[in-house]
Amino acid sequence: MTPVSLKARGLRKAYGEFEAVKGIDFEVYRGECFGFLGPNGAGKTTTMKMIYGVVIPGGGELSVVGRDVRRDIREIKRRIGVVPQENNLDEELTVRENLLVYGRYFDLPRKLIRRRVEELLEFVQLSEKSGERVEHLSGGMKRRLLIARALVNAPELVVLDEPTTGLDPQARHLVWEKLRQLRNGGTTLILTTHYMDEAAQLCDRLVIMDNGNIIREGAPQRLIEENTSPEVLEFRPRPDRLEDLQRLLETEAEHVERSADLLLAYTHDSDALMQAVRRSGIEIENTLYRRASLEDVFLRLTGRRLIE
């Protein structure tokens, strides 16, 4: 049995009438990358904030690195790292100073901080920028610096709230690479995302959240297998033939979703489905074949797309 790094039971949080998190259960094992996937407002960020003590749970149990968040939050914060969704680097300080000052909040010996800061700058490829004011960094660099900052206390668990939101693809891949290296080094990662590919790329296990509830849990591949068919055909027919095509697909495919003027047909045999559509003579403007992803799982489970 793998040791548990984090455990939540019936965890809930309400702000007045609004229930942000409605009693969720989950466990994170040591050394794994655990994902929270869901649209904006699903309750992901509130859950993350409860882990690092900025939001106090309204009910239920939450223990992090074996300690109760209500009783031992200072000790928990000493042992975890936090990459917030919103950039809150100290704009008045340079890149290096940001890490040095942050290290002091953990009461680490000065020498140790200095050594670790240089290693971390190297790790996130910011050594050359170390003397720059933070405001001069690009978005991707700021995010990497936030990650380096979260590692200054050599945490056993790192919480990342949407680590790649707003980054261009190249910057994003660089962040993914760093997170994979961390995980391979044995650090437990908990991250939120509304990108399916990110969850599929990084996470060993994940939960899908919607409206403050966890609606599914499992390994990314397994979630896809259990909740959707393996292959997807996306059709964009002429607007006047949309209804006809939908009726046809509903008889031929295993499952059909409609998203605006796009029809998504889920199947185990895309060739057969394709032929059936051709035989019908319905004019199609655009067809795309792809393998099913977590996006499809979310669509299937909630009837909505992740990013609306």
């Binding site: 690092y52 003590g53 900025v54 939050i73 200072r74 000790e75 914060k77 000493r78 936090v82 917030p84 919103e86 950039n87 809150n88 680097l89 100290d90 704009e91 008045e92 942050y102 909040y105 953990f106 009461d107 206390n153």
Partner: peptide, 14 residues
């Protein structure tokens, strides 16, 4: 504006 305190409360400093 700076969110300086938001960064600090995530550390052992309360």
């Amino acid at each position: 504006f700076g969110k300086v305190y938001d960064a600090i409360v995530a550390t052992p400093v309360n």
